[in-house]
């Protein structure tokens, strides 16, 4: 056995990081993060309990007091819940990265000849996969409390893609936050700071028209609202493209700003 180990180490030539190599690195990191998720199922269970509570809370506690013209509240609500769930789940990206930073494993990764984007991209893709699972679960819960897709299979499928794509873009915001704050506990809290105004001052749970005038301006154009509106239109009917193109612009913008920011931060951490 030892005979093979005792060969003197050779100078290994650097292999250029081609896109194919980068994809392999991203896959290796994503696989590692998904293995972690699979081996701590209790974490996954707890991360689904919170959104289910939100469903019950809004459906049965607040719902009666919220008037939504043109549809039942449960049909109105679920577009918001789907988007909120993937966004809140994305906060795990910040926490997970901060944990890796503290544990020193990011130092090891940074000392390896791997693609500089792989640790972050692998993390966000793993979180995307987790979101697919959580979203599927939420659809089941939603159906259980009376939600229905009223607009046909293809638009409903597109709606799910929209939810996941927006959540994916936002996980880069969380990646950036995780790299900046570095402490898992702080990351947990810091991640929610941008989330709260965006999720609650939006059309996710209440019609924007019910808000005071000064808030309506913000609530109408901000990314969560336009995404929720797109999802609502896709699942319930209504003007789809008006919201969809805005959602696509926002998603693209978030990626264009936060991917380079997060990767630059990773290089210099």
């Amino acid at each position: 056995m030892t005979a093979t180990v005792t060969t003197a180490p050779a100078l290994r030539r650097a292999r250029p990081i081609t896109p194919l190599v980068a994809v392999g690195d991203i896959a290796a990191i994503a696989r590692r993060n998904l293995l972690r998720v699979a081996r701590t199922p209790q974490l996954l269970v707890f991360s689904t309990i919170q959104p289910v509570m939100f469903v019950l809370l809004f459906r049965y506690v607040f719902g009666g007091a919220i008037h939504t013209p043109g549809s039942t509240y449960v049909d109105y609500l679920m577009a918001g819940i789907f988007v909120q769930t993937t966004l809140f789940g994305g906060a795990q990206t910040a926490v997970g990265l901060a944990e890796d930073l503290r544990g020193g494993i990011v130092d090891r990764f940074r000392s390896l000849p791997m693609a500089r984007s792989a640790v972050l991209a692998g993390r966000t893709f793993a979180d995307l996969a987790r979101n697919v699972f959580v979203l599927a679960l939420m659809v089941i819960v939603a159906t259980g409390v009376g939600f229905r897709f009223h607009n046909g299979a293809v638009p409903s499928f597109v709606a799910m893609i929209v939810v996941l794509a927006f959540g994916y873009a936002f996980s880069w915001v969380f990646a950036y936050i995780g790299m900046v704050v570095k402490e898992p506990e702080t990351a947990q809290v810091a991640g929610f700071i941008p989330l709260f105004p965006l999720v609650f001052a939006s059309s996710a749970f209440v019609p924007v028209a019910s808000m005071p005038g000064w808030l309506q301006g913000f609530a109408r154009v901000q990314p969560v609202s336009v995404t929720v509106n797109a999802v609502r239109a896709l699942t319930q009917g209504g003007p789809i493209y008006h919201w969809l193109w805005q959602m696509i612009v926002w998603t693209g913008l978030i990626l264009v700003v936060f991917v380079p920011l997060a990767v630059a931060r990773y290089r210099r951490i």
């Binding site: 290994r12 292999r15 190599v21 392999g24 690195d25 290796a28 590692r32 293995l35 972690r36 081996r39 701590t40 544990g103 020193g104 494993i105 130092d107 090891r108 990764f109 000392s111 390896l112 000849p113 791997m114 792989a118």
Partner: peptide
Amino acid sequence: LAGQYAAVDETLTGRENLELVGRLYH
């Protein structure tokens, strides 16, 4: 590099940790 604190993944097995690093060395 072996840093001051063991930089291994707690939830992975020993072998998975080593194979991950090997893959990342390409």
